[in-house]
């Protein structure tokens, strides 16, 4: 029940977020040559679903205004091009090389202004505030992605993925563009330095040694409960049987 409520909240967030990102500028770095190359790739690989003008069809949403960040995120995590329609586009093997991705992103960006691929400066999280990142993460992300970024289930078979393999750029872009059920965290909601703090926190989870020992997958008390029955109690029963047999 809670998850459904949260997912709904996410949708509301997303709607609000979309409106506020629309004013981002077009990609200035993209050359006309890239856009042309991207257009060609798009017609071959994407237009069947997204429509010839990327205006969207019954099968896929419009890409007008989603920005280069969305395109880069979808392509560099292998989510697009979608292979089979399903609840959610899964991550899979990346289908395009870096130049092609850049070209497709440039094409999508040329359609209408939208959130841009973050720059190296945006992604420099070295000086970010770790504790602030944790605070933001717990307030905005854990309800779907779990306290340790281990991921979680959403309603109707959808899921929020594990974050442990996402690159800083993907994390940044995911926040900017809000894929699927994920809300958009525009620069008004989370400033670039907030985003850097979040990235720093996720990176910290990934690298920090676990002081308690084996983490059991960091999914909370369910795996602890399984472990106590399957590991602990079974060991104790084995010991009881052994001692029982020893006496005779």
């Amino acid at each position: 029940m809670l998850l459904i409520v949260l997912a709904m909240l996410g949708v509301v967030y997303a709607a609000v977020g979309q409106a506020t990102t629309a004013d981002a500028a077009t990609d200035t770095a993209a050359t006309q040559a890239q856009v042309t190359a991207g257009h060609k790739l798009f017609q071959e690989g994407c237009s069947s679903c997204h429509g010839l003008g990327a205006q969207g069809t019954q099968n896929a949403p419009t890409l007008i205004g989603v920005g280069s960040a969305a395109a880069d995120f979808q392509l560099s995590t292998g989510r697009m091009p979608l292979a089979v329609p399903g609840v959610q586009a899964p991550e899979k093997k990346i289908q395009y090389n870096d130049t092609q991705i850049a070209a497709l992103a440039a094409f999508v960006a040329s359609l209408s202004p939208g959130p841009q691929i973050p720059t190296a400066k945006d992604l420099d999280y070295a000086g970010a505030d770790l504790a602030l990142g944790g605070q933001i993460f717990r307030t905005n992300c854990t309800q779907c992605h779990n306290f340790a970024g281990a991921g979680g289930a959403l309603s109707q078979g959808a899921y929020a993925p594990n974050l442990m393999s996402a690159s800083p750029q993907e994390i940044y872009e995911a926040m900017l563009t809000g894929p699927e059920n994920m809300p958009v965290f525009s620069d008004q909601t989370l400033t670039p330095s907030d985003k850097q703090a979040v990235i720093k926190f996720i990176e910290n989870i990934r690298t920090e040694p676990n002081p308690g020992g084996w983490s059991l997958g960091s999914v909370g008390p369910v795996s602890e409960g399984l472990f106590v029955w399957i590991g602990g109690l079974l060991a104790l029963i084995a010991a009881a049987v052994w001692i029982g047999a020893k006496v005779r």
């Binding site: 809670l2 717990r138 854990t142 992605h145 979680g152 909370g220 008390p221 369910v222 602890e224 106590v228």
Partner: peptide, 11 residues
């Protein structure tokens, strides 16, 4: 105002 996926009680 916070909540996490995987909120469960002890077994």
């Amino acid at each position: 105002d916070q909540i996490t996926a995987g909120s469960q009680p002890d077994w």
